[in-house]
Design a protein around this nucleic acid. Structure first.
Length: 273
DNA sequence: TTTATAACCTGAACGC
DNA sequence: TGCGTTCAGGTTATAA
């Protein structure tokens, strides 16, 4: 579920329930996540959450004593619900909030992560998981000049290159396929073997597709507290992802499915070269 | 240094 | 119905 637009949607959804609220309790129901959840996360208890930020696909809940770093992995989701709401299997981490509400991290595959960064450990952005990240795709730090320079002499495929968080953050498997389709670039093409005008278009389309998805994610915000807690996501706008064998919406050619680096990849062999 | 691959997990969907 | 296989939206650690 969580690509960058869903993480941003989640951030917007939880922010009003968390910001300037005192954290009343923290419960680790299952510590075996990507890394074990350490007891020091309890440091947050008794303090107010001052900001809820996002860096790449990490959610950062900042307080004056330190920050909680959350990652949703492949199957994670966050829900705000009343404390008397029945707990679900795979509700692994619970943050008790003022007003008998809780934020629950639900993650069946446990690829997600919960970490604590103490204020005394230096700037949050120098945390080992954050310090080597590339630019945010929607920021001015990511533009056509940057992408062109980053592709220079690269022998890896363009899809792997834009999915690499050192190149740019937040471009997951779905939006990599979509942005490449919109740019007319075949996913297997070597990054260093693409003309500048086409990379300019790709940088624009990465921004465009993510912006559109965030807007659509925004429409699911009202459903955030719904019983099933699932943020609806939008398949109707996808041009190639999960459309193997179906006709290209532009030319009618059958959409191809291939595997690049163990990830399903979809493209139109006529529109993308 | 760059690139490719294995590993971490559970559950849903599918075929037999 | 039940069992085995395959696949899934992410990221790091390790090997080549």
């Amino acid at each position: 579920m969580p690509e960058l637009p869903e993480v941003e949607t989640t951030r917007c959804g939880i922010e009003p329930y968390i910001i300037n609220r005192r954290i009343q309790s923290i419960e680790i129901r299952e510590s075996r996540m990507r890394w074990p959840i350490e007891e020091c996360v309890h440091e947050l208890v008794g303090h107010k959450a001052e900001r809820v930020e996002r860096r790449a696909k990490y959610l950062l809940i900042r307080s004056k004593v330190g920050s909680l770093i959350l990652h949703l992995g492949m199957s994670g989701s966050l829900r705000i619900c009343p404390t008397d709401h029945e707990l679900k299997k795979h509700d692994h981490f619970i943050v008790g909030l003022e007003g008998d509400m809780e934020m629950r991290l639900h993650d069946p595959r446990r690829f997600g992560a919960v970490l604590w960064h103490d204020i005394n450990d230096g700037p949050l952005m120098e945390h080992r998981l954050l310090q080597h990240l590339g630019p945010e795709p929607l920021s001015s730090h990511f533009d056509s000049n940057y992408l062109v320079a980053s592709c220079s002499n690269r022998k890896t495929s363009i899809k792997q290159h834009i999915m690499n968080s050192k190149t740019v953050v937040g471009v997951g498997n779905i939006y990599a396929s979509e942005a490449l389709f919109r740019s007319g670039i075949k996913p297997t093409r070597k990054a260093g073997n693409i003309s500048k005008p086409r990379l300019v278009r790709l940088s624009e389309q990465i921004k465009q597709v993510l912006s559109e998805a965030i807007k659509q994610g925004g429409t699911t915000l009202r459903d955030f507290l719904r019983e099933d807690g699932k943020p609806g996501y939008f398949k109707q706008r996808l041009q190639v992802y999960d459309r193997a064998g179906k006709p290209c919406r532009d030319c009618g050619q059958s959409i191809q499915k291939i595997v690049i680096s163990n990830r399903s990849t979809f493209y139109c062999s006529k529109c993308q070269r």
